[in-house]
């Protein structure tokens, strides 16, 4: 029995008459999280986690019909029981569990298995069919513990501060930026933010996520920026007139892609910190195993690699196309580019 099928607007559940992470406007959609490649504007009704409702509202036009659902609670849509479970990706990110006559499917959305101080940790959910992302589905992607990477970032910031340089730290405006801010050591200097980051940071604070104080960097002149400051901005701001006005600076990008030297060199960055909100290779394998699924659909990323690996390990696995070709780092970037500099 197939609870979901792929349509030209994304995954569709016929028995419940709703889409999951639709690619285009549909009447009813369940949203795993508020990143641009998982949300379509103009849907009739949105269902998302209670923790993520405010985040989603900030990314949609005013007046969008958003119904919140607490993690672990369920609603019935058509003949399908739907519940949401923490995915550990960003604030409010959820896996979607679908149940019909004892048949259980789970759509992971994006997830990571490592702890993150800004969101509820990933919880494995037992199911027969698991639809998993595979952004970092290669064994070269293995993350170091977050505290070690944050220590590197703080050390880089401190060195820059001592040398009289501003630190420009790039990370996706929603999720990564707040996770970075949570790990920065405010004893080193002031934390400034790009408009897109400041806006989402405000939403995180309104949801009770503790974050050190930040200041919107605004559009002021460069002499307003204290030399020891760090500026957290989306990657699209790199090498823009906005980023140049801070004067002498060092730039760095925090992303899982930075694990590979070429990806960092290509962006002409001073530093790359491999900090990701997606599961690494061991994380993907562990998460899949924990679901107990017999059948796995692989989407968003290195789909052919993970599909082959799982097939060779006795699972029924297939690759599922996505709207974005996920094998490239710019997909998530593109979704962020539309963000304005003002909050």
């Amino acid at each position: 029995m197939s609870l979901l099928r792929l349509t030209d607007r994304g995954l569709y559940c016929e028995a419940g008459d709703f889409h999951v992470d639709a690619w285009a406007a549909v009447p009813r959609v369940v949203v795993t999280h508020a990143h641009g490649d998982h949300v379509a504007w103009g849907c009739g009704a949105y269902l998302t986690s209670s923790a993520g409702a405010a985040v989603l509202a900030a990314r949609l036009p005013a007046g969008a019909a958003i119904t919140p659902l607490a993690y672990g609670e369920s609603v019935t849509m058509g003949s399908v029981r739907v519940s949401l479970h923490p995915a550990g990706h960003i604030l409010g990110s959820a896996q979607v569990r679908l149940e019909l006559h004892g048949e259980v499917w789970v759509v992971s959305g994006d997830y990571k298995t490592e702890p993150d101080p800004t969101c509820t940790p990933f919880e494995p959910v037992r199911c027969r069919t698991f639809i998993t992302e595979s952004t970092f589905g290669l064994p070269i992607y293995r993350w170091r513990p977050e505290h070690e990477v944050m220590a590197d970032i703080n050390r880089w910031w401190r060195n820059n501060a001592e040398a009289g340089r501003v630190s420009l730290l790039y990370g996706y405006a929603l999720g990564k930026a707040q996770r970075l801010i949570a790990g920065l050591d405010p004893g080193i200097g002031p934390i400034l933010t790009h408009g897109a980051v400041e806006r989402m940071t405000g939403v995180y604070r309104s949801q009770g996520v503790p974050l050190p104080p930040t200041t919107y960097a605004g559009a002021g002149a460069r002499r307003d920026t204290p030399r020891g400051a760090i500026v957290v901005a989306p990657p699209a701001a790199d090498a823009s007139p906005w980023s140049r006005r801070f004067g002498p600076s060092s730039n760095a990008f925090a992303s899982g892609w930075m694990r590979v030297r070429g990806a960092r060199r290509r962006r002409s960055l001073d530093r790359g910190f491999a900090l990701s909100d997606h599961a690494d290779w061991p994380g993907l394998l562990a998460a899949i195993e924990a679901t107990g699924a017999e059948s796995v659909w692989v989407t968003h990323g290195y789909t052919t690699v993970l599909t082959r690996w799982l097939s060779e390990h006795g699972l029924e696995a297939r690759a599922v196309a996505t709207r974005f070709e996920g094998e490239r780092e710019d997909a998530a970037d593109a979704a962020d580019t539309a963000e304005a500099a003002a909050p």
């Binding site: 290669l138 064994p139 070269i140 694990r259 590979v260 030297r261 070429g262 290195y302 690699v305 690996w309």
Partner: peptide, 20 residues
């Protein structure tokens, strides 16, 4: 085959090995 896939993504033999 997984080594080869990794190598294609990294584009450098020495680095691929160091990462794996």
């Amino acid at each position: 085959w997984l080594f080869d896939e990794s190598y294609h993504a990294v584009g450098d033999l020495a680095e691929t090995i160091a990462l794996l």
